[in-house]
Design a protein around this nucleic acid. Structure first.
Length: 464
RNA sequence: GGAUAGGUGGCAGAGUGGUCAUGCGUGGGACUGCAGAUCCCAUCUAUUAGGGUUCGAAUCCCUACCUAUCCUCCA
């Protein structure tokens, strides 16, 4: 299995062992505001990546942090005249709900920063002791000049950073590149006691304190969106390696590209974002997942109604075929691993975890299965079902209508009535039944003497 | 200015030297009582520009131009 690694800046082999737990850390959100499609992309991608690793037999522990103390959270709380905890609780809960809606269920543990203050203070103390950090009147800062690998991941030139710095010059830092790891208390702000007085943690050190606690000084995969490479990941590397002395923090660095809108990055500060909630009014989670996985992870996606519409088409095509196949046979969970189609798909993914290429190949298989649907024998049906089931097990893009709902009996009575009407050429009545069922989310399809049906609610603009 | 990733049809997007895949869209056809689903055919005269290497370049080299992200908080 290979993947583009941001540190190596090329596609390299992912050498992971199946005999030990694979430790994956992905930077979670700051719980300060509504979540947008950009967040969705990153977390859907890593969800599918981790699930795929598991499908391939790796035992993965997927850790994510939640930044629940931060300037922006405090500012928002002040604006609204509430305690910061109200803000962070509200959006933490919203985040969890969205993850649930989007089928993002691969994370083993969400670690909140405010529940790791002792670990953070320990790290700062160590850094101060070793001379990597110094105290000023407003906080404790990391001394970047003591860590000579700073800038390697992001390709930043140390001197250029120094001179061309856009960083605040007002602070009492001894070097403009130095970053804050402890912020001293100002009136009205939440605080924790520390050897440097009341205060709260800086952002970068939250993650290292958390990963060190659960993973130790090094782990296997570190992921997030590309926008966190600098300075956040440089800072994490500097902090943890200064403490541990290890030559690396993570074996692999995987960064997913941004979501753009009108060719510009979607972001809170530009106010050009589309909320996940808004998308889910008109589109199913499976459709959003498809749209966001339907690109190489290193390629930015220009978000538009067109990509959602395309996703809807393809999700429908795969889902409807899946339904038809499952009416033909149900032993698709057997004999996984002997499936030649799955082998083909594995080979595609193993080149660079490219879900778009996976989808392209799946769609061509779907075309073939549709062509042969009437003549497929049992092993072929099983193979097809297994394959779609396998793909769905880590992508979650198949919409599963059900033919065994609680209304099954009633539907079948109506269908036999409709059959009778059709044989009497009472097409008005027959079509009326079909239309009424459709309004209830029950789709039927005539094929010769047979009529198959499934349930599938409609969403958004397609309704009517 | 530096770093990174790119510039292929209406859109999306494969393709590291030899008739420019594929998907969406659009048009037509088959099937159907009609639909739906599905299939077939077509369409869109597409490789940023200019040089070079080559029998031959989207693909290799050079130059220019352009786009996005990062170089401040951000997934």
């Amino acid at each position: 299995m290979k993947v583009y690694d941001s540190m190596a800046k090329e596609i390299i082999s992912l050498n992971l062992s199946k005999d030990e737990v694979v430790k994956v850390f992905v930077c979670g959100p700051t719980v300060q505001d509504n979540f947008h499609v950009g967040h969705a992309r990153t977390y859907i991608f890593f969800d599918s990546l981790v699930k795929y690793l598991r499908v391939r037999g790796y035992s993965v522990f997927y850790l994510q942090n939640i930044t629940d103390i931060d300037d922006k959270i405090i500012n928002r709380a002040n604006e609204e005249g509430v305690d910061y905890i109200e803000v962070s609780e509200k959006f933490t809960s919203e985040y969890m709900q969205l993850m649930n809606l989007l089928h993002i269920d691969s994370v083993n543990f969400y670690a909140r920063a405010t529940l790791h203050i002792p670990e953070i203070i320990n790290q700062i103390s160590e850094l101060v002791q070793k001379g990597y950090a110094y105290e000023t009147s407003d906080g404790v800062y990391f001394r970047v000049s003591k860590f000579n690998d700073f800038g390697r991941l992001s390709g930043q030139n140390m001197d250029a950073l120094k001179s061309g710095s856009r960083v605040d010059l007002n602070e009492q830092k001894s070097d403009p590149r130095d970053f804050v790891i402890w912020k001293k208390y100002k009136p009205g702000e939440p605080f924790w006691e520390s050897p440097w007085g009341k205060g709260r943690p800086g952002w970068h050190i939250e993650d290292t304190a958390i990963t060190e606690k659960y993973f130790g000084p090094t782990y296997h995969i570190h992921g997030s969106g590309t926008d966190l490479i600098f300075p956040h990941h440089e800072a994490e590397i500097a902090i943890e390696r200064s403490i541990s002395g290890s030559p690396k923090l993570a074996d692999y660095w995987i960064h997913s590209a941004m979501i753009n809108i009108n060719d510009e990055k979607m972001s809170k500060s530009l106010k050009n974002y589309v909320k996940i909630r808004e998308v889910l009014v008109d589109y199913w989670p499976e459709e959003l997942r498809y749209a966001l996985l339907n690109a190489q992870f290193k390629t930015s996606i220009n978000f538009s109604p067109e990509i959602l519409q395309e996703a809807r088409q393809n999700v429908n095509q795969i889902s409807i075929l899946y339904r038809k196949l499952s009416l033909k046979g149900r032993n698709y969970k057997n004999n996984l691993g002997e499936n030649a189609k799955i082998k083909v798909l594995e080979n595609i993914l193993d080149k660079n975890i490219d879900f778009r290429q996976l989808f392209t190949e799946v769609l061509s298989m779907v075309g073939e299965w549709n062509r042969n649907l009437d003549t497929m024998n049992d092993p072929e049906v099983t193979e097809a079902l297994q394959t779609i089931y396998w793909v769905d097990s880590f992508t979650n893009i198949v919409r599963r209508g059900s033919g065994v709902s609680s209304v099954k009996g009633a539907v079948e009575i109506l269908l036999s009535l409709r059959k009778e009407m059709r044989s009497r050429k009472e097409f008005g009545i027959a079509d009326g039944i079909r239309a009424d069922l459709k309004d209830l989310g029950i789709y039927i399809e005539d094929k010769g003497e047979e009529t198959i049906w499934w349930t599938s609610e409609e969403k958004g603009s397609d309704k009517n």
